[in-house]
Amino acid sequence: MSEETPRQRIDREESATPGVVPMHHPIMRELDEPTDGFEPTPVWLMLIYFALIGWGGWYLAMNSGDFQVGVLTDEMMRPGAGLAARPEPAPVDPMVLGRRIYNNCVTCHQADGEGVEGAFPPLAQSEWMLGDEETLVRILLHGAQGPMVVLGNTYDSEMPAWGQLKDEQIAAVLTYTRASFGNNAPAVAPETVARIREAAGRRTQPWTAAELRAAAAP
């Protein structure tokens, strides 16, 4: 006869003592409190753990920038790299750069360049977008305010200034918007942006439609 398991013992005891008062059952039916076995720890497990701890030490040493508080980015994390390891950004195609910067514009002008009816003017097929590039640069550098007529509708909202962008960035976003949403106007050169920025001096006021027309007049 094979050895009885605890479970079987409880079952046998339960069926053998049908007369026991029910209050005993809640404790009779459960097994004794659990105990610990003492099987040895497998060696292969310990080897895995030592390997893992070794990796942890190496990773910590390689990615902690000598525990300096000023070391933040991946490039600077290597030991001894210090602040000199900061990377130089690579040049990007103006259309790609422009599309990225346009992410800032979609809140108003929308991803399809159609704007919001009654609130924010469209860029698609807009006579402003397809027209004078210097006017567009002025709007981007210093913003615009007051009523503006776009495709026959009047808009009265505030266009923020983007003068904090670099010349290449302003040129790129204009190049992108003038060649997207069905628009087909030539690219804008960073030099144009630089020239207009220079000419505007320390202007901080946003442009009005009338001022823009006056500035564009030859």
Binding site: P42, L45, I48, Y49, L52, I53, W55, G56, Y59, L60, N63, S64, G65, F67, Q68, V69, G70, V71, L72, T73, D74, M76, M77
Partner: peptide, 25 residues
Amino acid sequence: LPAWLVTVGIVGSMMMFIPVITVAV
């Protein structure tokens, strides 16, 4: 945050393999 502070958190997380595998086994 300083890189080292984040790296310490990553190493701590990876070392969690030890108790977790142990308990699972």
